[in-house]
Design a protein around this nucleic acid. Structure first.
Lengths: 126, 126
DNA sequence: TTTGTTAATGCAACAAGGTTGCGTTATATT
DNA sequence: AATATAACGCAACCTTGTTGCATTAACAAA
């Protein structure tokens, strides 16, 4: 898999996630940083950071890929099964620090799950 | 919105969903029926059937759109918040008739949610 | 059963998110 | 400074899904 080099792209991208529990879509990152870095680079760095357990990814509305900083995940296992909340008005997505009880299902082995909740966020909530 | 005409495409597509709780991806339907109907038609019929509350849709692995028959949904509201299970081995997806408790979140209005569980299905479970 | 309205279809072209191959650049090690 | 190779940029491509428009076919009414 190789060593991670501290390149500018890695540095800048990591910085984007060092603020909060807010998730950022690959699309948004490309819109924002596409002049500085090639989109291929951005996709590859995100991939690698996910592989290394630094970020986790999930799918939002319309199948867009979103990334957020992992909390207590290692490269080996992503324990994180928190739900994500996407605002249907402003589009913002964040990680909810809520424990979701995954229902027991007979004869099936659950390996991962994605819970996407959609509605109006605090800011867009009238 | 217009009346629904009983065309061949509608008939054939509806037939595909009349069996079980198994979901079918738009992609699979196009692979299967693409010689008979144009993909545009397939997409449009699926759209319309969803609008009319006959089918519901959700996103599976890789952001692919899946459809399944609604159970107790009307054109006006999709109450259905059941989780979906996708097998990581064979790719099969089905609706789980399990009630998921959506966590209460202060200051947010939940409008819908998607719960995708991934793992090994009954058949692929060793 | 013919006529007329308009929903539904097919086709081609497009759009958006993401991926791949490959030659070049730059990081880190000796 | 020399070297190995990870990371990069670029262009071209792939896939899922959408749009515009001319044509066809449901279906209701005459």
């Amino acid at each position: 898999m190789g060593v991670i080099r501290k390149t500018k792209a890695v540095e800048v991208l990591l910085n984007e996630f060092n603020t909060s529990t807010v998730a950022i879509s690959a699309k948004a990152l490309i819109e924002q940083l596409g002049d500085t870095f090639n989109k291929t680079t951005i996709y590859r760095v995100l991939d690698k950071l996910e592989d290394d357990g630094v970020l986790h990814s999930f799918l939002g509305k319309e199948g867009l890929k979103w990334y957020a900083k992992c909390n207590g995940c290692t490269a080996k296992e992503h324990k994180d099964v928190h739900p994500h909340f996407q605002c249907l008005v402003c589009g913002k997505v964040d990680c909810l620090s809520i424990n979701v009880t995954i229902p027991k299902i007979p004869n099936r082995k659950i390996e991962m799950s994605q819970f996407l909740i959609q509605g109006k966020c605090e800011d867009c909530f009238t």
